[in-house]
Design a protein around this nucleic acid. Structure first.
Length: 611
DNA sequence: TCGGAGTAG
DNA sequence: TTTTCTACTCCGA
């Protein structure tokens, strides 16, 4: 199991496009801040999230590029994801944000362990293709590739010492092979795509991710066994590794939890109720608290953690979860790539937005971006809004279809902190209102800007009025428009991904690979962490959508007998929040949109049907 | 289902 | 330490 983390990703996207930038200090600007910068810039003292003004002062010759348009980053991320996926068996590649990827290579490692020649480890061959034994790379299986944690103390001549060691311990051998695979993939990524990455090699996403931070950039770290303490007086390498981290560095333990934990550890202030909101007296960074500080605190365990962190609003079993995390236990799966995002949102921030007209204009721009993104990410088929050969026009339109229809539209705003007499108000939270997505939004032939205009006037502005009934004087600092609640439309079957039942069984099978399981006395309480909450959804959705539907336009008879589809649409016929405009009727045969009877003929004109 | 909170990159 | 543009998950009502 490994994590890839592309080094300073935004900057790397520009560098890959224009390699000259690689040797210069490069910073990516969003609004007034440096979103990220390359390592040359960091060497000169620049930091992420620094004000551009300060950055220029510190490093006057910094090259600054604008990175507010995320499309290039999104595209590069998808490309790299696809590139890596081609190497990994069983599609076990999960993207986290734009610049991180988890790879579950269990199956590949198991296969290669079997084929290892114990008599000539020096000249081993890693197979990347079960069907073609020539595909792969040579490697030296007498030692780990790259740095390890703890650092290797082996002398350079280690054939004697490593070889039996690795074979005694199955986990050690598997991690060793994985370290070579990691090296290989990093090389491929660098030489074929021009991106460097940092990688962690371990048995869970949590451990791999933290390990990946140890040697950055452009390097890798393998977390060595033993993963289970050898005796009561011993510590496992997991404990050693986890203990050294600041508590807030653990993924899943964010700002709020850190504050509550620190309040307890540092002040052991038992008066602090579980849900007293952290005030400005909340503990700040002078006092570092490590995982060890928490883990070894008197009476520490799931129960005490639940008392410290639990309460209304907290996750269920938060104590158990956090106890698991600080003990290095993470049983979450590497999820295979999702075909459809669960939400698409577009936002922009503003100095202050105070007039209705300014708000309206801003919303139209956001709506237009949102519609473009919906078309890019939720449709399938060749559609190019700009250039289209005339004769092909109709044939290219008819091939474009929605993969999913979002049902809910959401407007969120954030107001500027009121700045009342010295007291900095802690209210930079967002507020939101939702409404159904109007069906006209799915009309692929309408001009984006026209649709945006219409969406704002017919839907978004009324949400805005609910959110801000006052006539003016909202000090808006942010607007966000989003669509959520995706309902997938009929699959064109073939390679519609993620919905594949065979794949799900295959996953289950690999889930049971024994060497992946983290076990041990010290965290026996957290074995079935999350099993209930994660196992579910793929299957549920798969069941609902597995049946291939509508490879072509169906006959009316097919439409009416398609129960699953009808169910979806019943779902989709959500109540209209204002009670108006809810004369739904049948789903359109071509795009799945619900169309009122009176409009169905007109609607269908939008589709040119192949027969 | 909605709206908010929390976390992450 | 609140400055960017997102995206996901969970909780209570």
């Amino acid at each position: 199991m490994r994590l890839q983390d592309y080094d300073c990703f935004y900057a790397s996207v520009f560098e890959a496009e224009n390699p000259v930038l690689k040797s210069l200090p490069l910073a990516v600007q969003q609004k007034q801040i440096i979103a990220t910068c390359n390592y040359e810039a960091r060497r000169r003292g620049l930091k992420k999230l620094q004000l551009v003004r300060e950055a220029k002062k510190i490093c006057p010759d910094v090259v600054i590029v604008l990175g507010e348009d995320l499309a290039p980053f999104r595209d590069a991320s998808k490309q790299l994801h696809a590139f890596l996926r081609a190497f990994i068996w069983g599609d076990r590649v999960e993207r986290l944000g734009f610049d991180e990827v988890f790879l579950d290579v269990t199956e590949m490692i198991e296969y290669n362990v079997e084929l290892l020649n114990a008599h000539d480890l020096l000249h081993s061959f890693f197979h990347l293709d079960k069907l073609d034994p020539t595909v792969g790379f040579a490697f030296d299986a007498t030692k780990f590739s790259g740095p390890t944690f703890p650092p290797s103390t082996d002398s350079p001549v280690c054939i004697e010492s490593c070889f039996p060691k690795a074979f005694e311990d199955p986990l050690r051998l598997r991690l060793l092979l994985a370290s070579h695979l990691a090296r290989y993939l990093r090389d491929q990524l660098e030489h074929q795509k021009g991106y460097t990455a940092s990688v962690g090699v371990s048995t869970s996403k949590l451990l791999a991710k933290l390990a990946g931070n140890v040697h950055k950039p452009s390097n890798q770290t393998t977390l060595l066994p033993p993963y289970v303490a050898a005796g009561p007086e011993e510590e496992s390498n997991i404990t050693r590794f986890m203990d050294a981290h600041e508590i807030g560095k653990i993924p899943g333990i964010g700002y709020k939890l850190v504050n509550r934990l620190k309040a307890h550890i540092l002040c052991h202030d038992s008066d602090v109720g579980p849900h007293e909101t952290p005030t400005r007296t909340s503990v700040t960074d002078n006092n570092k608290v490590t995982v060890r500080d928490v883990r070894c605190f008197a009476n520490m365990g799931p129960h005490l953690l639940e008392k410290i962190l639990g309460g209304p609003g907290s996750s269920r079993d938060i104590g158990t979860k956090v106890w698991g995390l600080i003990n290095g236990v993470d049983t979450t799966e590497v999820h295979t790539a999702r075909k459809i995002p669960t939400q698409i949102s577009i936002e922009d921030s503003y100095g202050t937005l105070d007039t209705f007209d300014a708000v309206r204009k801003a919303l139209v721009l956001l709506a237009a971006s949102l519609i473009r993104r919906m078309r890019a990410d939720l449709t399938e088929g060749e559609r190019d809004d700009n250039k289209q050969a005339d004769e092909n026009k109709s044939s290219s339109i008819k091939r474009t279809r929605w993969l999913a229809h979002p049902r809910t539209l959401r407007l969120s705003t954030r107001t500027r902190a009121p700045e009342v007499n010295g007291t900095r108000n802690h209210i930079f939270n967002r507020v939101s209102r939702s409404a159904p997505v109007p069906r006209f939004l799915f009309n692929l032939d309408e001009n984006v800007d026209a649709l945006a205009e219409r969406l704002v006037h017919e839907s978004i502005l009324s949400m805005f009025r609910k959110l801000h009934p006052e006539r003016a004087g909202w000090h808006l600092s942010l607007l966000n428009v989003a669509v959520t609640n995706m309902v997938e439309t009929a699959g064109e079957s073939k390679h519609s991904n993620g919905r594949d039942i065979g794949k799900m069984f295959q996953q289950q099978e690999t889930n049971l690979q024994p060497w992946k399981v983290i076990d041990g006395d010290d965290h026996s309480t957290v074995h079935d962490l999350q099993s209930a909450s994660t196992a579910n959804s793929e299957w549920d959705e798969g069941k609902l959508h597995a049946a291939p539907r509508f490879p072509h336009a169906p006959s009316p008879a097919e439409t009416s007998t398609d129960d699953v589809f009808a169910d979806d649409m019943a779902d989709a016929a959500w109540e209209d929040s204002d009670g108006e405009d809810s004369t739904w009727s049948d789903p359109c045969r071509f795009c799945g949109t619900l169309v009122p009877h009176f409009a169905s003929a007109a609607h269908e004109l939008y589709h040119t049907v192949p027969e």
